[in-house]
Design a protein around this nucleic acid. Structure first.
Lengths: 153, 153
DNA sequence: TATTGTTATACTCTATAACTATA
DNA sequence: TATAGTTATAGAGTATAACAATA
C-alpha cells in the first residue's frame, strides 16, 4: 500500500491543508474523531460512552479489578473515575466488593445485567469499528493497529 | 511488517487488555493521547494548543481564510471559534480584515509576529511528531498516515 | 430565507487539592 | 509515609439557541 498520494496541495474546498496533513498528529486526531463518531452512533442505544464501555470490558475480562488499576491503565484521574463507577453501579451493571487482600481497595465485578449489556455493546463496538475502517482491507486494518501500538506503547 | 503479535492475553500489569486492543478505535484513541502529550510538551514554550496551531497554520497557507471555512474544515462550532480567533488577535498573531467579496465575512491574516511564531511552532510540531513516531521507520510513518486518511476521509 | 459572526449558556471532560481509612 | 477511594472545584472542550448584519 502507501502508493497513491496527493500531488497537489489544494483539496476539496480550495483550502490548502497539505501543511497540516504532513503531521502524523493531525491525522491521528482526525481519525480518532471520525471513529469516535461511529462509536457514539452505534453505542447510543446502549447509553455507553467510550470510557464506560472500556471500563465494563476490562471488568469483564478482569473480575475484581480495582479503581486504581483502571486509573493507571486508562490514564484517568481517580477522582474522575469515582462518578463513572458510581453511575455504572446505579444502573445495576457492576458492583464493588471488598478486596480480599487489601482492605482499602474495592474489587469491581459485573452483574448479570452488566454481562448481558457488555455482550451487546461489544457487538455494537465491532460494528462501529467495521464502519469506520470500511475502506481498509483486513491486512491494512491489522497493519494500522500494529503501527498505532508502536506509537503509544 | 505486522508480524510480531501478542499470543497471550495478559500484558504488563497482569491485566487482560486483549479485548480492548482488538478495537481499532481503542488504539487510535490511545495513540492520539500519546502524540498529543508530545505536542503539548514541545509546544508549551510557544503557548499554542493543537487547535490554535492548526488555525495559524491554515491562515499561513490560506491568507484571508474565513471563520466559517475554518469551522467546516475543523469541525468546530463557530461560537467556539470566536474566542480562539479573538485571543490570537489579542496576542498580535493574526488580524481580521473585511472580506473583499462578502460583506458579512472577515478574512484572517497573519501578522509578522504570527508568521515568525508559526515558523517556530512548525519546528516544534515536527519534533513532537518525530518523538511520538520514533519507533516507526519512514516507510511505516508514511503508511500510517495513508491508513489514517482512509479512515477519516 | 440563508449565512457570517457573535453572545450567552450549559454540559461534558479533565486536572488539582484536600480528606479518610487502611497499609 | 504511602496508597485507595472519595469529595469539591476549577478549567478546558464542546454543543445549542438566539441575535444583528449582510447575502
Amino acid at each position: 500500500m502507501a502508493t497513491r498520494r496527493k500531488a497537489m496541495a489544494v483539496p476539496d474546498d480550495g483550502i490548502d491543508t497539505s501543511g497540516l496533513e504532513a503531521f502524523v498528529g493531525y491525522n491521528i486526531r482526525r481519525a480518532s474523531l471520525a471513529i469516535t463518531d461511529h462509536f457514539l452512533n452505534e453505542m447510543a442505544v446502549h447509553a455507553l460512552r467510550p470510557v464506560e464501555f472500556t471500563i465494563l470490558l476490562l471488568i469483564k475480562h478482569n473480575a475484581g479489578i480495582t479503581s486504581a488499576q483502571l486509573c493507571s491503565l486508562l490514564n484517568i484521574q481517580s477522582s474522575n473515575l469515582v462518578g463513572l463507577v458510581k453511575d455504572l453501579e446505579r444502573r445495576g451493571l457492576s458492583v464493588r466488593q471488598p478486596h480480599p487482600l487489601d482492605g482499602r481497595a474495592l474489587g469491581l465485578h459485573l452483574t448479570p445485567a452488566g454481562s448481558r449489556l457488555i455482550r451487546e455493546a461489544q457487538r455494537a463496538a465491532r460494528q462501529a469499528d467495521a464502519l469506520a475502517t470500511a475502506r481498509l482491507t483486513d491486512v491494512q486494518r491489522s497493519t494500522l493497529v500494529d503501527l498505532l501500538q508502536l506509537v503509544y506503547r
